Each structure stands twice: as structure tokens, then as C-alpha cells.
Amino acid sequence: MISIRGLTKIYHTKLNQIKAVDDLDLDVKKGEIFGVIGYSGAGKSTFIRLMNRLENPTSGKIMIDEEEITALSKDQLRVSRQGIGMIFQHFNLLWSRTVHENIAFPLEIAGVPKAERIKRVDELIDLVGLSGRGDAYPSQLSGGQKQRVGIARALANNPKVLLCDEATSALDPETTDSILNLLVDINQKLGLTIILITHEMHVIRKICHRVAVMEAGKVVEQGDVLDVFLHPKLPVTKRFVEQVMGDREQDDALDKITQSYTTGKVVRLHFVGEITNQAIISTVAKQFDVQANILQGKITQTQKGAYGTLFVHFDGEESEIQKAIDFITSTSVKVEVGLHD
């Protein structure tokens, strides 16, 4: 669906040049929600603006549905952009226009007849959950409602791709979840390909199928979201995973707790998918002569399944503890032994 090769954007200043995007290669499958995550300055917002040529690349190629976006003239690009919707962090609504008029704006530009525009806008208002608010102005809406208008406007011309640039960063957590649920619903109902830029791993975890991690203009790590959660390779990725799965204050507290154990072993268990629903610890306590004390645990859900970690102290004879650990390992739970010993 989307193929990017050698994408580079260089900004020139009086003193030097800055590579905001540096020789980036990426493939996005049709109908998937693909996340791009990075800290401030990683180049992710520049990357998303290159996708529809709000910024022109210094070099490289972008193919969307077999059309080379980077080779289009201005007139060709104007037509092609109708197939690429975009939503923004700060909504970018027309404040002097109503909800209905904001959503209708791209249809007006495309020359869609009035009767058809009205029908399409009414459909979109229902789709994004704003029934009855068509005559309201942006100043009369909450942040979440404004973003729903932005989403409806981006969908007006039935795009093939939806680009989301930090679409939830200006929203509170509850509203963020409602907007993310809406994006998942749109993805499933319309089969829309979504590229989502964010600095929040919670957003990636909740709705994305795959993720690319950007640092210094480059994609440094990518893969299925669950795989990245389970096996983060680079320090930057590990920090993002900690946003969801790790709590440094809790880890510090855990260090203090485990220092008090002079016998047994402290292990960390990694659960994936259906295994998270199995009563493994209680089974171990029944089958082996060990005492199991759960110290800390957390389970989170991704689009590809659940992922959880559990810190457990096992006490008893060393041979029995080893049997218990071997049993857990046989269930496909990953076991790290000897933590904090």
C-alpha cells in the first residue's frame, strides 16, 4: 500500500544543515494502523508532513497505492491529496464555520454538488458521534468534539490513507481513549490505512498493529507492537515500553522489598496472549513444595494480544524451586531468574 525508500529532508541554516529525516525506508500494509513513535526532535512530524508533501523531501521516493507522490506536479498533487486525509494535534478548524461547514469544506474545494455534500456531511457527523452538533461552532465544542470534527473533515473525500499527527496529545486521558476507539472503529468499518505519529506508547499499545521507532531522523527499530513490547532492542525503545509496562518508583520499591529476602529466588515472568489468563502461580503452589509470593505485576492489552509481567518470590528447597521454574518455562512463559538476588 505504502512504500517509502531513501526519504530524506534536510533543512539548511546559516551555520549548518539539519537532517530532520535521514534516509528512511518504510512499508505500510493496506488496512493496518501503523504507529511512528519518537521523542521531540526525532523527525516524526516532518516525516508525516512529507507523506502528503506539506513538506517537500530533499530526496527519496514515496509510493501510495502505486502512485509516486514525490513525482507529482502541483496540479497532480492537488488531486492526489484528496485520497490522503490528515488530522492535527490542534484540530486546525475554521472557527467562523459550523461543524457542518467545516466538514463540508474539502468537498467544496473538490467541487462536489451541494446536495451530495449535505448527504456526505450528515453521514460523517453520525460516524464520528456528533449527531445534533452540526450547527455548533468550534468554540462551543470540547477538545474531543473538535478532534471528531477534524476526523470527519479528513474523511470527507473518502481517502485511502489517514495521517494522524499527534492527534491526541492535546486531550485528557479519557478523551484520548475515546478518540483512539473511534480511529479503530473507522479502520475496521472503512478498511482505512492509518499512519499515526505520537510520543506516547499508550497510544501505540492501544490501537496500532505495527510500530516504527524514530530517533535522530532514522527508523531505529520496527515490528509488530507485541514483539516490540516483548523484545525492545534499543535504549530509546525500552524507555517507551517503560511508559506502559514499567514504573521506576515501583521498581525502586521492588528493589527494597527483595533485598529483605535471604532465601529462595525472585523471578520475573513474561506472559503473552492467552497465557495471561492461566492460573499458573496457583498451579505451581499446588504441584510443587514451594511458597509463592507475588511482589508486583501488570498486564496490558495490544491489538495482537495481552502482554504481562509478574515478579514472584519462590521459597523452598532449591531443587523444588527449579522444578517449579522448569514447569513455568514449559508453558511458554518467559522466565528471568535471579533478579535482585
Rank of each mutant, 00 (worst) to 15 (best):
I4Q: 10
R5H: 13
L7R: 01
K9F: 10
I10H: 08
I10L: 04
Y11T: 03
N16M: 15
I18P: 05
D22G: 08
V28L: 05
V28F: 07
K29N: 12
F34P: 02
G35I: 00
G35E: 01
G38D: 12
Y39W: 10
S45C: 11
F47G: 02
M51A: 08
L54T: 06
L54I: 14
I64W: 09
E66S: 15
E67H: 13
E67W: 02
T70N: 04
T70R: 10
L72E: 01
L77I: 13
R81Y: 06
R81I: 05
I84F: 14
Q89A: 06
F91Q: 00
N92A: 15
L94M: 06
L94N: 00
S96P: 02
E101C: 06
N102Q: 09
L107D: 01
E108K: 05
I109P: 06
A110S: 07
P113V: 11
E116S: 08
R117C: 06
K119L: 12
D122T: 13
D126V: 11
G129D: 06
G129T: 13
G129W: 12
G134F: 07
D135Y: 10
D135A: 15
A136N: 14
S139V: 05
Q140V: 05
G143P: 13
K146R: 15
Q147F: 01
R148H: 12
A154T: 07
L155M: 10
N158S: 12
L163H: 07
E166K: 08
S169I: 04
D172Q: 11
E174F: 10
T175I: 11
D177P: 00
L183H: 06
K189C: 12
L190P: 08
T193N: 11
I197R: 02
T198Q: 02
T198G: 04
K206H: 09
H209V: 02
H209R: 04
V211N: 04
V211H: 07
V211T: 10
M214W: 00
K218W: 05
V219K: 04
V219Y: 08
E221W: 07
V225S: 05
V228C: 02
V228F: 03
K233W: 12
P235Q: 11
T237Q: 05
Q243T: 04
V244I: 08
V244H: 09
M245S: 08
D247T: 14
R248P: 04
Q250C: 10
A253G: 14
A253H: 11
T258Y: 00
Q259V: 00
S260Y: 05
T262I: 08
T262C: 03
T263D: 15
G264C: 04
L269N: 08
H270M: 14
F271I: 02
G273T: 07
I275L: 14
I275G: 01
I280K: 02
I280Y: 14
I281A: 12
I281W: 12
V284K: 00
A285I: 09
Q287M: 14
F288Y: 15
V290I: 13
A292R: 00
N293S: 05
N293K: 02
Q296I: 00
Q296D: 09
T302G: 01
G305E: 09
Y307K: 08
L310N: 09
L310Y: 13
F311W: 14
F311K: 02
F314P: 00
F314M: 00
D315C: 00
D315I: 00
E318D: 14
S319Y: 03
A324D: 03
A324H: 07
F327R: 03
I328E: 01
K334M: 07
K334D: 15
V335K: 06
G338M: 10
L339W: 06
